[in-house]
Design a protein around this nucleic acid. Structure first.
Length: 536
DNA sequence: GTTGAGCGTT
């Protein structure tokens, strides 16, 4: 086995890290020893310059294909947002500071669905493959000592934590969910995903990955198809993502604009047409790494009526001129949303739209969302949810406050007819009667963090997209559960009218989940957050 | 002795 000598900083004593059979070094291997590091560099003997090590797909490649890693001592690269932006050189302890910061962000993680037989030892043993495990405990019945089937684990590095949250886990024969516990407050909820606007068609995912990898490990790239002039890049480290937001970057000669895939809290205040009324509840669903919600909860209600002329994404996308109110307000979690080419609208509830005619039932980016209390009140009469039917039993999802908007999603276009429930509020806009601007939709979807999910679902076949990996980034995998072994049962989609699905469901795509019950089968209610979380 | 959505005697 080949070993690579790595030190945290140039001049430090190196640690030998094992390379893989193909000669590459896994970033995870690197990070096991150097939490927070995202790459390697080395001092070139000839030029005396520092050279970076090629990084791709979580692997670091030796500088020379023949001689491999050679006798170089490599030192770590840490993502540093200020490195690129500021000229004030912080002390060279930035990396260490960074590590401390990340360490501080570690939190206990709940592990759900453990086998009864799983012990604290076996739990620890399992998770040690991700990094240092500071704590592993199984919750047990005090009398019998029998496991309650869940436990907690805490990691020594944030990276390990993130990786754990980003994956599903087969522990002692059972697929387990790992999440940030509900008991944890929000905080540090930083999205890892960025919206890259102004993309051209010749910028492919490899280009994006390659380009953005220099700022930190890229865990996912998603380009909606058909081409829509934007894409999403997900970083392992939310700080990296954050650091890029607001910047213009040139990729293949094209100036793209990076912005947050999440709506900005300030936009609530400053842009009337945006109305990002974030909930203050849990699990609105940002990134999987932060499944407890997001850091942008403002609780402000942006009430919005009519068409606004705001670009939903501040000009970094193609949405111009129209208002998000063009976008259907429907389908806030129910429509299967297979389509993205045409009209948005309708699908207020459980429309199981397999339609290929271009309807898109989905949430509106600009709709103020109710807090969860309203959620029930708003929707019970229409979707039959009574609060314990799977997808809403924990009340995490904020729902669009259509009433506040006066939006009527009487979408009757295409095959939604008969399936969409009309907006019961019955007043306001007929969304389907409004002109559709796909670019606007893009921006809107971006804002509500829904697009990525849907399109990903949609495209997983044609693109060979990794649905799991995508989903995994989003909420600790609980939303993936449709694809797992199916060892759990649960409530069916409470709204299922036939093949109705949740927003993440894609009945027409060849997901593994299209068995009529929709993805809610295994979800425990927090899947509400999926919608959003898929984006962040 | 069974079970399978959840949230931790700090």
């Amino acid at each position: 086995m080949d070993f690579v000598q790595v030190s945290e900083e140039e001049g430090d004593e190196p640690i030998e890290l094992p390379a893989e059979e193909d000669g590459t070094l896994l970033i995870s291997t690197l990070q096991a020893q150097f939490p927070g590091s995202c790459g390697l560099k080395y001092r070139n003997m000839d030029s005396k310059a520092v050279r970076g090590v090629r990084s791709n797909e979580g692997r670091l490649f030796p500088p020379n294909v023949d001689s491999g890693w050679g006798e170089y001592v490599y030192f770590c690269v840490f993502p540093k947002e200020n490195k690129r932006k500021s000229d004030d050189n912080l002390e060279n302890s930035t990396a260490k500071t960074k590590r401390i910061e990340t360490r501080l962000r570690c939190t206990d993680l709940i592990v759900l669905g453990l086998a009864w037989k799983t012990t604290e030892d076996s739990l620890r043993e399992y998770f040690e493959s991700y990094g240092e495990v500071l704590m592993a405990q199984i919750k047990k019945d005090v009398k019998s000592g029998q496991s309650k089937g869940f436990g907690f684990v805490r990691f020594g590095s944030y990276e390990a934590q993130m990786r754990v949250l980003a994956n599903r886990h087969l522990i002692d024969g059972r697929w387990c969910e790992v999440k940030v516990p509900n008991s944890k407050g929000m905080g540090h909820q930083v999205p890892c995903k960025v919206f890259v606007g102004r993309c051209t068609e010749d910028i492919n995912s490899d280009d994006l990955r390659e380009y953005f990898s220099k700022f930190g490990e890229v865990t996912d790239v998603f380009i909606p198809r058909p081409f829509r002039a934007f894409s999403f890049v997900t970083f392992l480290d939310p700080d990296v993502a954050q650091s890029l937001c607001g910047e213009d970057h040139i990729i293949k000669g094209v100036s793209v604009h990076v912005s947050n895939a999440a709506p900005k809290a300030e936009q609530n205040r400053t842009h009337q047409g945006q109305n990002y009324n974030y909930n203050s509840g849990n699990n609105f669903g940002m990134h999987s790494y932060h499944p407890q919600g997001n850091h942008m909860n403002s609780g402000r209600s942006g009430h919005h009526r009519g068409n606004n002329q705001h670009n939903l994404h501040g000009g970094d996308n193609t949405a111009i001129g129209n208002s998000h109110s063009n976008i259907g307000s429907g389908g806030y979690g129910m429509g299967s949303n297979n389509n993205y080419g045409g009209n948005l609208g309708g699908g207020y509830t459980n429309s199981s739209n397999h339609n290929s005619g271009g309807n898109m039932n989905r949430q509106d980016a600009g709709i103020p969302y109710n807090r969860q209390n309203n959620f029930h009140g708003m929707n019970q009469p229409h979707n039959g949810n009574v609060g314990n039917s799977g997808w809403m039993n924990r009340g995490h999802l904020d729902m669009p406050n259509l009433q506040a908007l006066g939006i009527n999603s009487q979408g009757s276009s295409s095959s939604n007819q008969g399936q969409n429930m009309n907006n019961p509020l019955g007043v306001g806009l007929n969304l389907n009667s409004l002109p559709m601007n796909p670019a606007l939709v893009a921006a809107a979807l971006n804002q509500w963090s829904l697009l990525g999910n849907q399109l990903q679902n949609q495209n997983q076949d044609q693109q060979g997209g990794n649905f799991l990996s995508w989903m995994a980034q989003n909420n600790g995998g609980h939303s993936n559960s449709n694809m797992n072994s199916g060892s759990r049962k649960g409530p069916n989609n409470p709204n299922n009218s036939g093949s109705g699905s949740m927003i993440k469901g894609d009945n027409s795509a060849s997901n593994d989940q299209q068995n009529g019950n929709s993805w809610s089968n295994q979800s425990s209610g927090s899947q509400n957050s999926v919608d959003k979380s898929n984006f962040l």
